[in-house]
Design a binder for these strands. Structure first.
Lengths: 192, 192
DNA sequence: TGCAGAATGTGATATACATCACGTAGCTAC
DNA sequence: GTAGCTACGTGATGTATATCACATTCTGCA
């Protein structure tokens, strides 16, 4: 299945577009390929685009003053990613994004998204629901952070995305869980 | 300023509606008054409405198996609140909401919101942006949880919402920060 | 093929925080 | 007014996790 078809099916779950409308919408997306390790958005950048993942795995992360990394999102196929704070507020990136594996994405500029949303009511509908789901996922993760200990969060993550275990290095999983790599290592060697 | 005018100005920041369109939209909102301590949504309830706060302060919270409470949101005037997971997915409430002070709200049913969004493109636009902002706030709080210690999060909260200090009991602030009330108490008596 | 750097395991120690326990002050109801 | 409840402070102790240090294994690549 090609990129266009993947996006089409993804949107069809939420919004009803004619083929012509979808073609028009799709004409604003720009395909892009990245190699493993390549940087998509770097802290301090001007952010113009958001990215729809076709294949591969990216990470969106924050580096604090002590050079410690926290991962906000592993972006897998059919997920959207960007530094949305910077994108919507026209500020410089505080979040960086790079590729854990080779990856193909579709880029959509902030300007084009707003233009399409304005022109096509169904597109606005789609983006409302996409953000809805992101909001709910974020709330859920926040609750999990407050309520569950590290082990429970680790198991929750792996039961949701079993592919991560082999796809991404353990220290990145630790950075997603918000614990040190040592603690994570001890965790899953203790309860074998 | 009455409830209608408060909502009107709130929406006008994001979407352009004619007076007729706003009147139509407003006709779907139902005003409601609550007393301090009154429950708006209780865990296990069917959730049909979301709430726009006109006055007072509500809290949205989760109680875990060990009867420990975590506060997801203090809902202040012009904020929206509900158990959105339950509301959108038509499941039972896992989040409860009650009133910290006497409060006035405007209720909007899930059904009516979707109806209005369908009928009025600008309403869909408004709700997309409202959710956007909620998503960004949630991401920011998540990052703060991973990156900052309790003291920093406490000071961040109070600098954002100074009125909370006198409005809500300290153990609720602790439940928002995700620490025990003892730890919070020690925190702000240590660094005077 | 072999080497450098990345990823991972593991021990020792320090620390932030939870938990338990108890005390006090203030508010509310009748 | 007093009984009871809620909010809040504070000490003692236990525990999960960070941090530092070093060893081991894996992997890409020249």
């Amino acid at each position: 299945m090609d990129a266009k078809e993947i996006l089409k099916q993804h949107i069809a779950k939420t919004a009803t577009l004619t083929d012509e409308q979808f073609d028009y919408l799709f004409s604003h997306f720009k395909p892009q390929s990245y190699k493993k390790g390549q940087v998509v958005i770097s802290e301090g950048d001007k952010v113009d685009n958001e990215y729809f993942v076709i294949s591969g795995c990216l990470k969106a992360f924050f580096i604090n003053d002590e050079i410690k990394m926290y991962i906000l999102q592993f972006a897998m196929p059919t997920w959207w990613t960007s530094d949305y704070g910077a994108l919507y507020n026209h500020t410089r990136a505080t979040i960086s994004i790079d590729c854990i594996t080779d990856a193909e994405v579709l880029c959509l500029s902030n300007h084009d998204r707003e233009k399409i949303c304005n022109e096509l009511h169904q597109a606005e509908h789609f983006f409302r629901w996409r953000t809805n789901r992101g909001y709910l996922a974020s709330q859920k993760r926040l609750l999990s952070f407050m309520n569950n200990d590290t082990k429970a969060r680790y198991e929750e993550l792996l039961s949701l995305y079993p592919q991560l275990y082999n796809l991404v290095p353990k220290h990145l999983i630790a950075a997603y869980l918000g614990v040190s790599r040592e603690t994570l290592s001890r965790l899953y060697h203790a309860h074998k």
